[in-house]
Simulated assay, not measured.
Amino acid sequence: MHDTGTHDTGTTHDAGKPTGPVWDPQQYLRHSGPRTRPFHDLLARIPEPPARGRPVRIADLGCGAGNATKLLAGRWPDARITGYDNSPAMLRAARTHLAKEPYGGHVDFVHADIADWTPGEPFDLIVSNAALQWVPGHARLFPSWVRALTPGGSLAVQVPGNGDAPSHVLLRELCASARWRDRLHEAGRRTVDVLQPGEYLERLMDLGCTVDAWETTYVHVLTGEDPVLDWIRGTGLRPVLTALAGDPAAEAAFLDAYRALLREAYPPRPDGTLFPFRRVFAVARTAG
């Protein structure tokens, strides 16, 4: 599950998101507590699948380092769960994360890009947490996913909706500036592809589902030096850092400029730096 958004199709794929960014599980997990909190809220709103006399079958799309997968296994300990991701680094971290967990069911991880993932079997629950923002036009995928749900099954998604936050606006503007536009304009544009809660509700209702859609803005209190930059280094900055890989001087110059902008936009308080973060949620249940 990856926060702050971007997704593009192309050659290198990561964390349920197409092309480009090279992911760093350790950097991502530095803020695992607040990153995971929205999934607890999503999980609480997912209805129980109907009893079928067999283990619940679950797909975790864009599973990242396995944070959400572990929580799914905790709620449905006898389930068969597959986490799908297109980042080899994240998949390695997920397998390590869950290797010693005493689950009665079966948890495995498969390399796949959710931008073109098609269910090959029926699922009782399909989940995507903080990954679809990387997939342009991702609502086009919903019909095939809903068709794969068993009667009474659910599709549950959470996407960051903070594309208009200073953190993202400043990143786009800096990438489009005269110094950086030739190298980074495309990387800077890859930050948001998220619908409004009502749009998700309408798209999923049109597929015959009962839908619960909402949004929440979390106000995180981050600590440490330049904590907003540290947060974004694990997510929205990945396309930029990937584009600048191999050029330490350029990377340092970009980060210095972005750091200064973030310090002004998110001034520290004595007890930490306030970092509002909007999330959009939808849980759709099929008839039956």
Rank of each mutant, 00 (worst) to 15 (best):
A249D: 15
S87W: 06
T4F: 14
A65M: 00
P77A: 11
Y218R: 10
P50M: 02
L207R: 01
K70V: 14
H2W: 12
L132V: 03
D256W: 00
H7Q: 08
A79E: 04
E251Y: 01
L195A: 03
D41A: 12
A65Q: 01
V169C: 06
V169I: 13
Q26V: 04
G120Q: 15
R190L: 10
P21Y: 05
D256V: 01
A93G: 03
K70W: 07
T286L: 08
W180A: 08
F123N: 00
C209A: 03
V228H: 07
L195N: 01
T6E: 12
E225Y: 09
P160H: 11
I114C: 02
A73V: 05
F39V: 13
W214D: 13
L207F: 03
F142Y: 11
D108I: 10
D8W: 14
A15V: 12
L91D: 07
E121G: 03
D230C: 04
R179M: 13
P55G: 10
L42I: 11
V192R: 05
P248D: 08
D271A: 13
T12N: 04
Q133S: 15
T210A: 06
W180F: 05
V228W: 07
S154D: 14
P47Y: 02
G152T: 08
R203A: 11
L241S: 04
G20F: 12
R45I: 08
P34T: 10
I81G: 00
P248M: 05
E48D: 14
R75C: 04
R238G: 10
W23H: 07
N67D: 10
D108A: 08
D212M: 00
S32V: 14
S177H: 03
A59E: 13
H40W: 06
D212G: 02
P88Y: 05
A115H: 15
D24W: 01
T223W: 00
Q196N: 03
T6N: 08
M90V: 01
N67K: 00
G188Y: 14
A178M: 05
R269E: 12
E264V: 14
H106M: 15
Y84C: 10
H185Q: 09
R279V: 15
I126Q: 07
R179A: 13
E264Q: 14
H31F: 11
T191N: 10
L262G: 05
D113P: 13
G74W: 00
G236M: 06
G288W: 00
D3W: 15
H111S: 08
E48K: 12
L255V: 03
T9D: 15
E48R: 13
G163K: 15
